[in-house]
């Protein structure tokens, strides 16, 4: 059986909220290392990869590998019943029809129990190669969100260019052009505000802003976001979570003249 207890329901609520507009039905693959999810969006342009490691739960028990096929809209309805600070426990049998969710508020002695019906989801899994990216940029997640939202007002696409001097986001649209350049910057007192750039070679790529704005719904999960780029491969947008868990988004580039 599976039994996984999260100190704060907030984490799962935010993860599901960040991905539910991108993917609708997906498997939560549970094994002894944790709970993983991998799903492409309907257009097969983006891929979501989430890993909640066993260490993020306390306790965590998973006797047999189990795939929990969940409709995220339905899961959202159930999670709405959990307060952010509630202790959340996920439970399932070895061949489950339902996922049992328990929300506890120890202060008020409230215990809520929900059963979510599961589905059989035949999902193709993609092998994601370990990539040595040419550019890795770490920046405040709210800054990245602001840039994407601002540029989307002008254009569908953004060019991202990185050099040792900085990272430049630029777009061209019907009403005009826009560009935002961030230079590396270190703030000792507020490390969350740092912009860090590691570069082995310059990169220039174009991406759909609609997807990037969608990824930015995860900004509440982490104060910083990491962008990993190499020419002509998908962009990796990573939000690191506590206990080496993560929420990653991969976005295929736009290629051509």
């Amino acid at each position: 059986m599976l039994e996984a207890r999260l100190e704060q329901a907030d984490l799962l609520k935010k993860v599901v909220d960040a991905i539910k507009d991108l993917v609708q039905d997906c498997n939560f693959d549970c094994n002894d290392s944790g709970v993983a999810l991998q799903a492409m969006d309907n257009s097969h342009v983006a891929l979501v990869s989430m890993m909640l490691k066993a260490e993020s739960f306390s306790p965590y028990r998973c006797d047999r590998n189990v795939a929990l096929g969940v409709n995220l809209t339905s899961l959202t309805k159930v999670l709405r019943a959990a307060q952010n600070e509630d202790i959340l426990t996920l439970k399932a049998e070895d061949a489950p029809d339902v996922l049992n969710l328990v929300f506890e508020n120890t202060d008020s002695d409230r215990l809520s129990e929900y059963d979510l019906k599961l589905m059989d989801i035949d999902q193709e899994h993609l092998g994601i190669p370990d990539t040595e990216y040419a550019a890795t940029i770490s920046l405040p997640s709210v800054e990245f969100r602001r840039i994407c939202v601002d540029l989307m007002a002008l254009s569908e696409s953004v060019s991202i260019e990185t050099s040792k001097d900085g990272i430049k986001f630029s777009c061209a649209g019907d009403i005009g052009n826009g560009a935002v350049t961030l230079r590396p910057n270190t703030n000792v007192e507020k490390p969350d505000q740092n912009v860090e750039i590691e570069l082995t070679e310059p990169v220039a790529l174009t991406f759909s802003l609609k997807y990037l704005v969608n990824f930015c719904k995860a900004a509440g999960l982490s104060k910083t976001v990491k962008l990993c780029l190499s020419n002509e491969v998908p962009l990796l947008v990573e939000y690191a979570l506590a206990g080496s868990s993560y929420l990653r988004f991969y976005l295929a580039p736009k290629i051509g003249d």
């Binding site: 492409m40 097969h44 342009v45 993609l126 092998g127 696409s157 759909s208 295929a252 580039p253 736009k254």
Partner: peptide
């Protein structure tokens, strides 16, 4: 114009 690539063309099917 640039063409949107598909993510599955970059990653191998398991």
């Amino acid at each position: 114009a640039k063409t949107q690539q598909s993510i599955s063309s970059f990653f191998t099917k398991k």
